[in-house]
Amino acid sequence: MAAMEGRTSEELTPRYYALCTIGGMLSAGTTHLATTPLDVLKVNMQVHPIKYYSISSCFTTLLREQGPSVLWKGWTGKFFGYGAQGGCRFGLYEYFKGVYSNVLVDQHRSLVFFLSSASAEVFANLALCPFEAVKVRVQAQPSFAKGMFDGFPKVYAAEGARGFYRGLVPLLGRNIPFSMVMFSTFEHSVDFLYRNVVKRKKEECSKAQQLGVTCLAGYTAGSVGSFVSNPADNIVASLYNKKADSLLLAIRKIGLANLFTRSLPIRMLLVGPSITLQWFFYDTIKVLGQLVVKLHLT
């Protein structure tokens, strides 16, 4: 299969999948940590759209009312939650891609990408959901908790274990389409860039050129995926902050048009660079990790 070209059977081992998982954890955790201030703005604009009607008004109002530290609220949930999600997302994607590529023929490459990313994302969201439940409350409710460590007991005391998975369905509705579009767009963008722009095989390019292709494809994948998943992202923020008690009520209160447009500019500003950096760090960690393994074996 074309997607598997250049891989040897030695690479597809538990060691390789472990390296992909570690790469996903580090890349996703660090990039989401770095974008915490933008995420704080996004969540508050989603939960309080009348008060925070623009990026600039949200930024200035939050600073005036809560001080500079507000921009880093929820950073622990971002780092640990999205680190866990990234480990499952990238590690299991590579695993499922190997499984599905052995079942489906070369003409079904897109289906392999879709199935692999969707399967991995289910597990990734089960890992992320409790952290997201606390993070959104911390960011949008100033008096709720200081962070993850005092937020978890408060959620459990108020709602039990169910409170951590209140937004699981819309979270899956946000992240599964995002992941499917993101991985598929990335894989096809990489193929397009090598064939039509670089006009050389990946193996014939330098590591710097390969990482450059990764960044271009990553930004394209993140931007397209953020648009597709924006409606569910708005619903998640609404449910976790009890602006609505059910999925249908959340959709009705937000409005169909607002599902796609509310906080979209800042989400694209947030997701595009974040996904680009994730792919850059992920590929860099894989390259360094494989180099260390080869040096160890020789």
Rank of each mutant, 00 (worst) to 15 (best):
R166W: 06
V190F: 12
G81L: 06
L288K: 06
A232I: 02
E11I: 01
I266S: 10
L295D: 01
G160A: 07
P177T: 12
A250Y: 05
N258S: 12
W72L: 15
F186C: 09
C88E: 01
Y53N: 15
Q139C: 08
L71R: 05
L239E: 02
P49A: 09
L63D: 07
L63N: 14
Y16F: 12
G98N: 08
Y95F: 15
Y100M: 07
L92Y: 05
A133N: 06
L126D: 02
A124K: 08
G23F: 07
W279H: 12
V228F: 13
Y95E: 00
L269H: 02
L41M: 11
L104R: 07
H48C: 04
L269V: 08
Q209G: 02
S119H: 13
K207C: 03
I55H: 06
F186T: 08
K199N: 15
L239A: 03
S143T: 15
L270I: 00
D39Q: 07
W72Q: 09
Q46T: 05
P14D: 03
F80K: 00
L247M: 06
G6M: 10
A3Y: 13
F192I: 11
L126A: 10
L248H: 06
K51T: 14
Q290L: 10
L38Q: 02
R200D: 08
G29M: 00
T13A: 12
L277R: 01
Y93Q: 11
P231C: 10
G74E: 04
T8I: 00
E203M: 06
L19Q: 02
V287I: 11
R64A: 13
P37V: 08
L211S: 07
S117M: 04
D283Y: 11
P14S: 05
V293H: 09
K201R: 15
N258C: 07
S54N: 14
L12F: 02
D150R: 03
V213D: 01
C20F: 00
Y240K: 02
E94H: 10
W72A: 13
G6E: 11
L288T: 02
M4W: 10
T60V: 10
M4L: 15
F178D: 03
V70Q: 12
W279C: 13
A124N: 10
S9M: 08
Y240R: 06
V103M: 06
C88L: 12
A28V: 03
N241W: 01
M180Y: 04
L256F: 15
S229I: 02
A133Q: 06
L115E: 05
G222Q: 02
A158V: 00
T298G: 07
K51R: 15
F183P: 01
Q139K: 12
A237L: 01
V99T: 03
E11L: 03
R15F: 10
K146S: 12
N44P: 05
T21N: 01
